[in-house]
Amino acid sequence: MSDFLTVGIVQTALEIGLIYSLIALSLFISYSILNICDLSTDGCYTLGSAVGAMVTIAGHPLLAIPAAMLSGVCSGFVTALLQTRFGVESILAGIIVNTGLYTINLAVMEFSANVSIFGTDTVFSIVKNISENEVWQNWSKLILLAVIIALICFAIHWFLGTRLGLSIRATGDSPAMVRASSINPAFTITVGLCISNSFTGLAGCLIAQYNKSTNITIGTGMVTIALASLVIGETISGKRKMPVRIACVVFGSCLYRFIISLALRLNVPTEAFKLVSALIVAVALIAPNAKQKIALQLRKRAQG
C-alpha cells in the first residue's frame, strides 16, 4: 500500500461499508423488491443505534442486537400499517414515522442528544478478546462484520426463495398479478417492511457499538447514503440472479465508503461531505442512462 491509501484506511472503509450495507440491504428489500420508497430509514437507524446503545450500556451487548432489530421491526410495522390499513401514500408514511421517531429516539436516549458507551463490553470487544493474536486483534472487527453480513445475505437469499419470499417479490413486481393470485398485499408489504427495517435497526446498533457512542443526528442523510450504495450495487449487478444482486449491494456499499475515504484523503472538508454524497448518488443514478446515450451517439456517428 502506498502512503496515500494505508491498510488502516481501507480497513475502516470496509468495516463501515459493511455496517452501512445493512441499510442498503434494507432498501434493497423495500425499494428494489417491494417497490416502496421507505423514507423512515433515517429515524429507524437512529432508533436502532439508540436502543442498541442503551441496552449495551445496561451491560447486555449481545442482547442489544436483537433488541435493536426488534425496534426496527416495530418502526417498519407502523410504516406498513399506515400505508396498508389506512391508505397513506408510502412516501408520506415513511416521512411521518421518521418525524415521530425523533422524539421517540430522544426518549430512548433519556432526553440527551449524545450517549457514550464506556466501561462496558461491545460485541466487537468481546470478539476481539477471544485471542491475543496480533492479527486477530487487528482484524477481528472486520471478520465479525463480514460474518454477520454474510449470514444476513444468505438469510435474505434463502427467504426470497420461500413461498412468503416469492409472494413479497411478486407484490413489488406485479400488483395486478398479486391481486389475482390469493396473496394479500397488505400482509406481504407489512412483512417486507418489518424485515427491511430490522436490518436498519441492526446497522444502527452495530454502528453505536463500533463508535462506542451515538447521537440524535446520527441518522441524518442515511437514506441517501444507503440509496447511493444500493444504486451503485444495482448498476453493477444489472439484471443478474438474486445472489449476485445481493452481493453487489454489499459491494456497492463498501465501494461507496471507499470513495468517501478517498475524498477524505484528498482533504475535502467534512462540511462538504453531504454534497459529495449527493454527487456520488447523482453520478450512480445517471450512469446507466448516460451509458445508453453514449452508446447511441457512437452508433449515430458510426453511421453518419
Binding site: 409472494s167 395486478a176 398479478m177
Partner: peptide
C-alpha cells in the same frame, strides 16, 4: 403484461400462482 411478474422466472411465477393450492 398484467398477469405475470416480469422480473421473476417462469417457475417462480407458477409457484406464486400455485400458492392457491396450499
Amino acid at each position: 403484461l398484467m398477469g405475470t411478474a416480469p422480473n421473476m422466472t417462469i417457475e417462480e411465477n407458477l409457484s406464486v400462482a400455485y400458492l392457491r393450492a396450499s
